[in-house]
Design a protein around this nucleic acid. Structure first.
Lengths: 304, 304
DNA sequence: GAAATTTTGTAATATTCTCTTCAGCAATGT
DNA sequence: ACATTGCTGAAGAGAATATTACAAAATTTC
């Protein structure tokens, strides 16, 4: 069993700072673990003893032992047949003008795969718990683009619990919501690179008021990571001047899935039924068309 | 220039024992160099000072410096997209309550792959042309969830052309925009299943006014497909009571990529520069950490 | 074949890294 | 509110590692 799997599916329960280490390690696997223990600790924003303790928790004699294992992994992977193929990979550099969209989709796919392998299950579980265990309000905030993701998550969460509040565009007035927030509340903030000053500032103010913070960011970490309780990272780089948001969307959906899974069976069933009903209600609209003819579809549409 | 090439094509003359080291290093590259200097020396049958001297001869400050370079090489090779795919998938099927989030991510990944292979390039090209060739206004509309995707696309398009208008929540008032629309205008509508009556109705009214329609929907086709000029479908089913929007997001991003590719070179470059500048502005925040040491990162984060 | 030069290893030193101890802190239960 | 438990980081001891200094081989040169 290689180290990556130990981290992803390991049966050991991790403390928050240990989790941060794991996240760093997975995001930049295995290079992040091949330096010194102290460098890894700094990157994760924890102290070196914590790194050492994690190594031991994983069953190693100490950090160097873990490192040796990591090295073995590298070796194995570098000699894998896949890497041989890699050598003759077509140069992605040429946008080729023609298949730009297709090339882009491929690039997103590999991005998603990266996301898949770089976030441990525990992070999702923690996020789910954080959201559902919060007694007070849950406030959502995002940047220029990511505010749409915040909106999506808000729309989902509305169905699971009350007191959801999405701050769409950050204005001076909106900052006022802060006065009502305290340590029983949760701020879910999305901040991918080109970290927006106003968003960071808002989060900082919230942190000062002891509001708990759940941060979604990229592997380079928004400054907000400094004072967030839990940080979920997600790769965003693709061959385009813009970054992709597809993986981020998948990620919040995954959190939703995790919330659903951890719910009481009855509660979950009620929600599933609810969706089922909504689906049927709309399906009746155009089912006929799909199964039979086109005419009924138009008919049903003109009826209301 | 990576270390391997330095060793292979280096212009420096090597002493016999140095050559032995190089040989070992190349035989097991780069793993052999990632341990301690002493371990490498032993494998080559020489003493450790010889190893250190070689490192310096190659232009490094010392052995650790060479090691850092070696690590960078590994990272570059390991981060190639293809290799990310290799990270094997755990057994699906077992929803297991535990790994709900992970299972979900896998399911999204395969969904995306499906999207990848089921939409021809021509569709993206036509969508791109449709958007950019429209002389009049471009109005965007979505449903309960998909309106966020509409919002994203609107945010992107704003940078490419004027007269972009996102109808966020559909109200009676908003329907009024219809009176200003005609056959020179374009309606981009997102309508995934649980096709919303109001959205369909709006599209229908637009169609009646001869507004051109670009529809994003799922493979079961929204009724709007009946009167849209171009329909892009995208699979949305995953193992969850909800549908995924990740692929849809990827899809609109792909359209953006296609638009960028089909633009005049100069125009595109200007936009890319713009993004580049935005990126650097924020990157300067924490770049130091990634390229050099850990210290500056923490410093920069606390500094503002 | 001896001196000069280069190469190499041993030993001592300097540096860096790991890991233990301990005390502070927050969360949780009584 | 108080005690308990577990998590965390600061500090420093101790170990491992890299590097320097120097002397012994080996090689070359005359």
């Amino acid at each position: 069993m290689n180290v990556r799997d130990m981290l992803l599916h390991g049966a050991i329960s991790l403390t928050p700072s240990e989790e941060r280490i794991v996240q760093v390690l997975l995001t930049d696997y295995p290079a992040a673990g091949l330096g010194t223990a102290t460098s890894l600790a700094k990157r994760a924003g924890v102290s070196d003893p914590t790194v050492v303790r994690l190594a031991m928790k994983l069953g190693f004699e100490g950090f160097p032992a873990l490192q040796r294992r990591l090295l073995a992994d590298v070796e194995a992977r570098l000699h894998s047949p896949l890497l041989m193929m890699e050598a003759k990979r077509p140069d992605m550099g040429t946008h080729s003008e023609q298949g730009a969209a297709i090339a882009y989709m491929h690039s997103v796919a590999s991005n998603l795969n990266k996301a898949l392998t770089s976030t441990p299950l525990a992070s999702y579980q923690r996020a789910a718990r954080l959201v559902m265990d919060t007694k007070g309000k849950v406030v959502l905030l995002g940047g220029r683009y990511s505010r749409f993701i915040a909106g999506m998550l808000a729309a989902y969460l509305l169905q699971f619990r009350p007191d959801i509040m999405h701050i769409d565009a950050l204005s001076a007035q909106k900052t006022d919501v802060l006065v009502d927030l305290g340590k029983r509340d949760l701020l879910i903030v999305f901040d991918y690179r080109r970290y927006q000053l106003d968003v960071v500032a808002f989060a900082q103010l919230a942190a000062a008021r002891r509001v708990r913070i759940l941060l979604f960011t990229d592997p380079w970490l928004s400054p907000i990571a400094e004072f967030s309780e839990l940080t979920l990272t997600c790769p965003i780089e693709v061959n385009s001047p813009y970054d992709t948001m597809a993986s981020s969307v998948a990620q919040i959906e995954a959190v939703i899935a995790q919330i659903l899974a951890s719910m009481e069976k009855r509660t979950r069933e009620r929600i599933e039924e609810l969706e089922e009903i909504r689906l049927q209600a709309s399906a009746s609209l155009d089912n006929a068309r799909l199964l039979e003819e086109e005419k009924p579809a138009l008919a049903s549409m003109t009826t209301k």
